[in-house]
């Protein structure tokens, strides 16, 4: 009796959130899904049934969407890897008990406090691709300190321009990744390291064989969080490089085709595909997390 009442109470407690998310997430996704199956072009809603036309056009007949997929893959790989490597590196460095550790921790975390739009505007200046007499930004800095080999065209580089956008993104999110790893490192009992030391392992070996394997769950969480940020990246690219096809990604295509071009059906289809890719990334993770918890 008591258990039942408790369960009901608990359910009632969460119910408002369930309803809110039901409407604001699933209801709205449902609406978007419906629009994606319509011929809606123009300002006024038009729910005329179009079947999967918007999807097949995007996937089989749209060179722009192919550019988007390519850019997303490049950006995601570089951004996620960059954050993980830099974040882990910083976490390990700060885990050595250096003086001023607290200062450095806050410093690496502060970019998180800033919006992508502000970050983007500043990095637009820093990554100015001009060379020669008009050289500026980081290129100018490289020129002055003699690192000429580093001077490059940043996001104006043909084909690989999108890779440059990963730099400000890494700048913004690697501190957060560092914090996640620090949390993981601090959770590792000292006895484990001591035991390894007693066995004659070097510090490097300890990290490779003891610590890194234990950080795997943190890496997984970080990959999910960073991965979904990178699939949704939008305002950062716009702020750094404006709207140009060479740096197009699905979120930008969705926005411009919907609001600049009034292709609401197509925009909704892009949104659904984006959601689907996020779901493919996230659902196995959620399933895995809950399964492992249940086993504990």
């Amino acid at each position: 009796m008591r258990i039942k009442r408790d369960a009901l109470l608990g359910f009632l407690m969460v119910l408002p959130s369930i309803i809110a998310i039901g409407i604001f997430v699933y209801g709205f996704i449902g609406w978007t899904g419906r629009v994606s199956l319509s011929n809606w072009v123009g300002l006024l809603p038009n729910y005329e049934w179009a079947g999967l036309k918007n999807y097949t056009n995007l996937l089989f007949n749209d060179p722009r969407f192919m550019v988007d997929i390519r850019n997303t893959v490049i950006f995601t790989v570089l951004f996620v890897l960059g954050c993980l490597i830099l974040g882990l590196f910083l976490a390990v460095l700060l885990d050595q008990g250096l003086r001023g550790e607290a200062f450095f921790r806050s410093l690496f975390l502060f970019p998180m406090a800033i919006s992508f739009i502000v970050t983007g505007v500043v990095w637009r200046w820093l990554m100015n691709p001009a060379q020669g007499s008009r050289i500026s930004g980081l290129n100018l800095l490289f020129d002055r300190i003699g690192l000429d080999s580093l001077i490059n065209s940043w996001h104006a580089t043909p084909t690989w321009g999108i890779a440059a956008i990963a730099i400000p993104a890494i700048w913004q999110m690697s501190g957060y990744t560092m914090a996640l790893y620090l949390g993981g490192l601090r959770a590792i009992p000292d006895d484990l390291r001591e035991a390894a030391r007693v066995d004659g392992a070097s510090e490097v070996e300890i990290y490779r064989h003891v610590i890194l394997p234990l950080l795997r769950p943190v890496t997984l969480s970080a990959m999910i969080i960073l991965g979904h940020i990178s699939l949704k990246v939008f305002d950062l690219i716009i702020a750094v490089a404006g709207k140009q096809l060479a740096l197009d990604v699905p979120a930008i295509y969705m926005w411009t085709t919907t609001f600049d071009g009034q292709f609401y059906g197509r925009g909704a289809a892009i949104a659904m595909l984006l959601l689907l890719s996020v779901a493919i990334l996230v659902i196995p993770y959620l399933y895995y997390t809950i399964r492992t918890e249940a086993e504990l």
Partner: peptide
């Protein structure tokens, strides 16, 4: 936990991942 809590949790969580431009 109430029965179904393990379904409600990931269902709530998924809301974190939607691209807001789409809604």
């Amino acid at each position: 936990k109430f029965p179904g809590a393990d379904i409600v949790f990931p269902a709530l969580l998924f809301g974190m991942f939607i691209p807001y431009q789409a809604v």
